[in-house]
């Protein structure tokens, strides 16, 4: 009997925590379908009119476009730089390797406000105008880490003898990379890229400090909420951001068997 009660208590507790975590998010999703522009409960009616309105809004469109462009570019850069860094740290032994490894991960551990401030001063000091490129640089700093972590973890789990076996069988460096290394790390690279994009797409703090007068989607939300304007559209945009970030994170979790994702998300 006690076993049953304990189980019941644990289950109830878990459900309560899940509700605590997800009720606000679900509310936003529900309000996105509100037919009125006043948030009241129960909803006066359901409608999808705000979706059309949001989609047609040039300001929101511009923010979305900026978010996508900055996110994709930052992800692309992070993909190349993060993978290369992971290979270097895994394959070579050099003086100060552990320090270098730590430095790579640091941007993710540092508070965003620090990274943002530092970049902001740097750009200012060097007379660089804030633009999409400053956003890309800001986002790349932490996107690299996610790719780096994922690829490095996979490389460490891969048997070193596989590379030797390929060479032993007559494969040159390129063939070994194409036939053995790349297929073995491919899912980790893709997972890293997806996580990187998800992080970039909803980043606010660093972006605020390096975006200047431009609005990414999260910055637009932030501004609209602060002014208390256009809340129906905010709900729609937030729903969209939730979707765009959750899908890659879920795919990445599938690709890496779950573990990598939880850790990198928690560190942020």
């Amino acid at each position: 009997m006690e076993g049953f009660l304990t189980k019941l208590a644990l289950r109830t507790w878990a459900v309560l925590i899940l509700l605590f975590l997800f009720i606000p998010i679900i509310l936003i999703l529900v309000y996105a379908f509100n037919s009125s522009n006043i948030e009241s409960w129960p909803l006066p009616g359901l409608s999808t009119k705000w979706f059309a309105a949001t989609w047609d809004d040039p300001e929101i469109r511009a923010a979305l476009e900026l978010s996508l462009r900055a996110g994709l570019t930052a992800t692309g850069l992070a993909l190349v730089l993060g993978s290369c860094a992971a290979f270097a740290v895994q394959r070579m032994t050099f003086f100060g390797r552990d320090v270098v490894s730590l430095l790579f991960v640091l941007p993710l551990a540092l508070p965003g406000i620090v990274t943002g401030m530092a970049l902001n001063s740097f750009f200012h000091f060097n007379g660089i105008t804030l633009s999409i490129w400053t956003i890309v640089v800001g986002h790349t700093t932490f996107c690299i880490v996610v790719v780096y972590n994922n690829v490095l973890a996979r490389l460490r789990r891969t048997q070193g003898s596989l590379i030797e076996a390929a060479m032993d069988l007559g494969a040159n460096g390129f063939q070994t990379f194409r036939d053995i290394t790349l297929p073995l790390i491919a899912t980790a690279v893709v997972a890293g890229a997806m996580l990187a994009f998800a992080l970039s797409f909803d980043e606010v703090i660093v972006t605020t400090l390096v975006a200047g007068a431009q609005n990414t989607l999260p910055l637009w939300i932030f501004g609209a909420v602060r002014l208390g304007q256009r809340l129906p559209e905010v709900n729609v945009v937030v729903s969209f951001v939730i979707l765009v970030t959750i899908v890659p994170v879920a795919i990445a979790a599938r690709l890496t068997g779950g573990s990598g994702v939880v850790r990198t998300q928690a560190e942020r």
Partner: peptide
Amino acid sequence: NTVFQDYALF
């Protein structure tokens, strides 16, 4: 050609 201790099968 080598037969590895851990087999090293791809």
